[in-house]
Simulated scan of single mutants.
Amino acid sequence: MTTLYDIDARTIDGETKKLGDYAGKTLLVVNVASKCGFTPQYAGLEALYKKYADKGLVILGFPCNQFGAQEPGSESEIASFCSTSYGVSFPMFAKIDVNGEKAHPLYKLLKHEAPGLLGSEAIKWNFTKFLVDKTGKVVKRYAPTDTPQSLEKDIEAAL
């Protein structure tokens, strides 16, 4: 059976990254977008990353253009926006699909291990978040409306 650590993803800079490199870390995986009502959550995500990175938290941002075409830019435009507008320093990845036939293997796994309301595996919108423990097990799925700060107790428990 495929685990999270068996999956590779392309970084926003075009490098292939093995998610196994994050073994032993607590992960918060988020599908992000630059032109969404939830985009200001980048600030909260960055604050969490700065606060808990030394304790083993890694936030992984995966841009996605599947919801209202709210991530239309290229990887370089996305990287520039995140850096300039929010000072994002956590790892960002290349734009992916999170739903449908072309959904990235990581999201297929996350959705299967932590379905949403009524057992639905579909991602409903940008800034859906998944908390993954140090062993690669998906602990919890959070709605886009859940602010990064509201996840702090769960993150602390997972660390």
Rank of each mutant, 00 (worst) to 15 (best):
G14R: 04
F81T: 02
L117T: 12
L118P: 00
T84M: 13
A143M: 12
V29Y: 07
T16S: 03
H104D: 12
T11K: 07
V132H: 04
P148V: 09
K25G: 00
T128E: 15
T147Y: 04
L109Y: 06
K95P: 12
F62N: 02
E156G: 02
T16P: 03
L159S: 01
N31A: 12
A94L: 01
F67A: 13
V32C: 14
G24L: 07
D54E: 12
G87H: 08
E46H: 09
P105M: 09
H112P: 00
P91D: 13
F93K: 05
Y86E: 07
G116D: 10
A114P: 09
A158H: 07
K35V: 08
G14V: 11
Q149E: 15
R141Q: 02
L28W: 08
D54H: 02
R10Q: 10
P105V: 04
E75K: 12
E75G: 06
T3E: 09
P148T: 06
I78V: 15
K55P: 04
L45T: 04
K140C: 14
Y86I: 08
L48I: 08
I7K: 02
F62C: 03
T135Q: 14
I78K: 04
E113C: 08
I96V: 11
K129T: 01
D146Q: 01
R141T: 07
T145W: 03
L28M: 03
R141Y: 12
D6Y: 15
D154S: 01
F67Y: 11
Q41Y: 08
G14N: 01
I96F: 03
K35R: 10
I7S: 02
L131C: 06
Y142D: 00
D146M: 04
T145H: 14
I59S: 02
G56L: 01
K17V: 09
E152V: 05
F130T: 02
T147G: 08
A47L: 12
Y107E: 01
K124N: 14
G44I: 09
R141F: 13
P148M: 10
N126C: 14
E15N: 13
K111H: 02
D133H: 06
E71Q: 07
L106Q: 07
L131T: 05
N31Q: 15
K18R: 12
K50N: 06
I96M: 00
Y52N: 00
Q66V: 15
C64A: 13
V58A: 08
K108I: 15
D97T: 00
S76G: 06
A157F: 10
E121H: 11
E46Q: 03
E46A: 06
E77A: 11
K25F: 03
G87T: 05
I96W: 01
N65P: 06
A23R: 15
E77T: 08
D97M: 00
V98E: 07
V58G: 03
Q41C: 10
K140L: 15
T39W: 13
